[in-house]
Simulated assay, not measured.
Amino acid sequence: MKKTVIILFLFSAVAFAQSHFPIDSSYTVKSVYDKVKKDHPYISYVQARKYENVNQKKEIVYKKIKDRELHLDAYYDQNKKLNPAIVIIHGGGWRSGNKSQMETFAMEMASKGYSCFNIEFRLSLEAQYPAAIFDVKNAIQFIKKNAQKFNIDTTKVAVLGCSSGGQMAALIGTTNGKSDFEDTKPNGKFSSKVNAIIDVDGILAYKHPESAEGTVAGLWLGGSYEEIPKIWQQASPLNQTDKNTPPILFINSSVPRFHAGRDDMIAILNKYGIYSEIQTLENSPHSFWFLNPWFDKTIEHTTHFLDKLFK
C-alpha cells in the first residue's frame, strides 16, 4: 500500500511539473460511490475484468503543446480484423476526472470487438473552451492516422462521453466538418469526423428550461451566460445539430437536469431522418456507469446500438 501511495504521489508531481497548472482530483470513482451509497445502499464497485484477446497500450502521446504532452490509452483486439473504434471522454464537470476512470468500460467494449481509446484532454483549470474540443478532435485524427496499428475501420468511429464528457461527445459529433471547431495543425490530413455519438447523461444545452448549469460550466466556457451568451449557445450541441449529425444514443439516469435539450435535439434529428435512441436506467443516479447494478446495462445498450450501426 505504501508503495502505491508513493507511485501516485510521484505521478501527480510529474503531471504537475509538466503542465504547470493546478489539478482538481475531486471527481473519482470513490467520491461517486460515497455520494451514491447514501440513497442506493445496494450498490457495489465494478470489478475490473481481464481479457486475453485485448491488447493494452497506455500513455501514447497524441499531441504536444510546447512542453505539454497529451496522452491516450488504447485497448483493442489482438486479431487482424478491422474493428469499429470508440473514442471515450471521461466526466468531471470539465475540470476534474481522468482517462483512467474509463478503463473498465474500455476493456469491456474492446472484448466485444471494438478498438477503444480513453483520451486525456485539457481541463478548465488548464485551458478553457474550446481547447478540450480541439484536443479530442486531434486525438481522433491521430487514431485514424494510426488506424492500421490499432486495427481500425476509419469509416466506423464513435465518440462516447459521460456527464460533461457526454456534452463534449455530442458537440464533437454535431460539429463534424465545421471549421470553427477544428484545430488542423496536428494530423491535419486526417478527418476528425465521427460516425456515431453516445451521450451518457450529458446535457445538450447550457441555457435551457431543463438545464441547471452555472459556475462549473462558466469556468470552462470562460464566463457566465450574462457575460458571454454567444459562447454558451455555441457550445451547446443542440444548437449545432443539423443534417450532418450522425446517429446518437442517449443513455440517461433518472435525474432530469442531465437530459437538458435532449428532446429538442431529437425533434431536429427526426426532421432529417437521423436515427436516435434513448435508454433510461430507472432509479439510477448520475455517474451510474461506474457502479453495479448499472454498469452491465450501460455496456449492453452501447453494444446493441453500435452493433446495429457498424456490424
Rank of each mutant, 00 (worst) to 15 (best):
A17F: 15
Q18M: 15
H20P: 01
H20Y: 13
H20N: 15
F21S: 12
F21E: 07
I23N: 12
D24E: 11
S25A: 06
S25G: 13
S26H: 08
S26R: 14
T28G: 13
V29L: 07
V29D: 11
Y33G: 12
D34W: 04
K35V: 09
V36R: 07
V36Y: 10
K37G: 03
K37Q: 13
K38G: 00
D39E: 15
D39G: 12
Y42I: 08
I43W: 15
I43C: 14
I43K: 10
I43T: 10
Y45R: 12
V46H: 01
V46S: 01
V46E: 04
V46Q: 05
Q47G: 01
Q47W: 00
A48R: 13
R49K: 04
R49G: 02
K50H: 02
K50T: 05
N53G: 07
V54K: 07
V54S: 04
N55F: 09
N55S: 06
Q56Y: 05
Q56P: 00
K57N: 09
K57F: 02
K57S: 08
K57Q: 15
K57M: 06
K58G: 00
K58N: 10
I60V: 06
I60W: 05
I60H: 03
V61N: 03
V61I: 15
V61W: 03
Y62L: 12
K64D: 00
I65M: 06
D67I: 10
E69H: 15
E69V: 04
E69S: 07
H71I: 03
H71E: 06
L72A: 09
L72S: 14
L72G: 07
L72N: 06
D73K: 13
D73H: 12
A74F: 08
A74C: 10
Y75L: 12
Y76K: 07
Y76P: 02
D77S: 15
Q78Y: 10
N79T: 14
K80T: 14
K81L: 12
K81V: 09
L82C: 08
N83I: 01
N83L: 09
N83A: 04
P84V: 02
P84Y: 03
P84R: 04
P84E: 04
A85Q: 05
A85Y: 03
I86V: 09
I86P: 00
V87W: 10
V87Q: 08
V87A: 09
H90D: 01
H90F: 11
G91Q: 04
G91I: 09
G93N: 09
W94H: 12
R95N: 14
S96Y: 10
G97F: 12
